[in-house]
Design a binder for these strands. Structure first.
Lengths: 157, 157
DNA sequence: GTCAGTGCAAACTTTTTGCAACTAC
DNA sequence: GTAGTTGCAAAAAGTTTGCACTGAC
């Protein structure tokens, strides 16, 4: 994740905490920094390990607290997948199109500008739209290759 | 849910169980029928109550078992939302565009043919696409109205 | 008769909560 | 000093698992 993003989101958080008379605790900024150190999706466990390694230990309760705050501020998105909940930094990143392998659980970002345009153009009555997430489920190349291998083996038998 | 769908999915299940030499237990068919009695999303709890009322009690383990089987057969989709996991019958229903209220958690189906076309036309390299789910997050009209009311109240103070 | 499938309860995982202690302001 | 935050541990919620029993074939 770009360092400039880290500075930008730290500023957004500071502004929000100031305006709402909330406290600028070291934990909140450490979690935010750790979140923006990942280039990819991460689990609570991975976040906990990262922040303990790079900063100081932070309890689960505080991690969930901070993440909820960041989700509300649109600095983080939360993906509840079959393999577990994953989080992702999302500042300056509006593409939330993901391809999810239903076999190994691997998630990757996908560029789909046409889909994004179509979603934005979709008219929703009686609903204030804020954001979206698209998940395309299927089988990744690695798993596909393994499946093909196993199929061939069976045929030979 | 249409009765004709119920018959169709029962046949799909029968065929699958036959071909894979699995057992056609009353539980499996009762769960499938119950699933296709809903017109909307439902939780495990709601499914359990429905099936107990309309058929006979089925244990949690068996419900999860059956649902997993149906998800694999593409007769059911599973939505892991912030308010909990919801299931949905999906035979003869390819639209998986949902609007989700981030305040009350209400989920509703949305028709978005342009989005669906765009998704289908999206080229994914090294990935066998099977299905997709789109979640548009925002605030529903009910919650929006309440928010507006509360805002006005604040101003008056 | 056999073994896939079921029910039950225990185990496990993930997230939330209550409360005392701490600290940002 | 005060009240928002944190850490801890317990609780809650949701799902999976082990095992004995059942019943579909």
């Amino acid at each position: 994740m770009k360092e400039s993003n880290k500075a930008a989101v730290r500023q957004i958080l500071t502004k929000y905490l100031d305006e709402n008379k909330l406290r600028k605790t070291p934990e909140r900024f450490a979690v935010l920094d750790a979140v923006y150190s990942f280039n990819d999706h991460f689990s609570i466990q991975e976040l906990s390990e990262k922040i303990e390694k790079d900063y100081f230990p932070v309890s689960r309760a505080t991690l969930y607290n901070a993440l909820n705050l960041f989700v509300n501020l649109r600095l983080v998105v939360c993906h509840r997948l079959s393999i577990g909940t994953k989080y992702e930094a999302c500042y300056a990143n509006t593409t939330h199109c993901h391809q999810v392998c239903t076999i190994c659980g691997k998630v990757s970002e996908t560029k789909a500008p046409k889909v994004e345009t179509a979603i934005e153009e979709t008219h929703l009555k009686r609903f204030r739209r804020d954001s979206f997430s698209l998940y395309i489920y299927g089988v990744c190349s690695t798993c596909l290759a393994r499946l093909t291998r196993e199929k061939n083996k069976k045929k030979i038998k």
